[in-house]
Simulated assay, not measured.
Amino acid sequence: MEYVAALAGLALVHLLAVASPGPSTVLVIQTSAVSGRRAGLLAAFAMMLGALVWAAAALYGLQILFARFEWLYVAFRIAGAIYLIYLGFMLLRHAGAPLPEADPAAAQAGAWQGFVKALLLQLSNPKVMVFMGSIFISLLPAQPPAWMDATVLAIVAINEFTWFALLALLFSGSTARAFYRRTKVWLDRIMGGALGVLGLKLALDR
């Protein structure tokens, strides 16, 4: 019963964290609105994969390595900040460009580009691992059984994919895409600016 309560608490806290607005939310929404449902779902899958990497790292001790070699954490953090600022700059730069016309080949290429962008975004932010490590320490027993580690990873995967897939389905609909097409210049500027600010925040945070 103790294990069930710990896992339920972990699932709730992690889901609330996933649902809080951040760069991942911005990227999945933008990818879904620009490139469609398939691209949005691939981006959601990439977010899940990246979160699983950090969750496994937190479970198996990478946080201790970061604590021991602070320069390694700083390097990851700065690299993630630079990538966020780059994504923001590219959105601002192309804000005035019209959306490309429907083309199956271009749509497929755009979907995989969205997957790569999302995966790199998730993997370039070590704060994800630090957060997961903190909630694992707070909510899980000191020496959990092996099945519990597997359950934790399953919870992370389900929460991440479910939330981002819902965003992808919502913002890839015809109404949302039509709205995005009409307001692309301003939405891209807002989202690009938000990514740039989040990148600066990541660079300056300790």
Rank of each mutant, 00 (worst) to 15 (best):
R177W: 03
A157R: 02
L140A: 13
A165N: 06
W163A: 07
Q122T: 15
S174W: 07
P144W: 03
F161M: 06
F115Y: 06
L123H: 01
Q108V: 10
P98E: 08
L169C: 07
P126L: 08
M148N: 04
M129Y: 10
P104R: 00
M132H: 04
V156Q: 05
S134W: 00
L166G: 13
R182K: 12
S138D: 09
G114M: 13
I158K: 04
A111R: 05
A150F: 12
G133S: 03
F171H: 03
L153Q: 14
A178F: 07
G173C: 05
A176V: 10
K117N: 03
A146D: 13
P98W: 07
Y180E: 11
L167D: 01
T162A: 15
I135P: 04
L99V: 06
V128D: 06
L187W: 11
A150R: 13
A176Q: 10
A150H: 05
W186Q: 09
A154N: 09
R177V: 09
R181D: 13
L119A: 06
W112D: 09
I155V: 15
S174I: 07
V116M: 00
I137M: 08
L120D: 11
Q143P: 02
W147F: 10
N159D: 15
L120A: 15
V130M: 14
A157Y: 01
I137S: 11
P141A: 12
K117M: 06
V130L: 14
Q113D: 08
M129R: 04
A102L: 04
F171V: 12
R181K: 14
L169H: 01
Q113L: 10
A142P: 01
P145D: 15
P141D: 15
T175N: 11
S134Y: 02
P141V: 14
L139K: 06
K127D: 08
F164P: 06
R181L: 09
I137Y: 09
V116T: 09
L139F: 11
K184N: 11
V130C: 05
Q122I: 08
A157D: 11
P126W: 13
S172I: 07
S174E: 14
A118L: 05
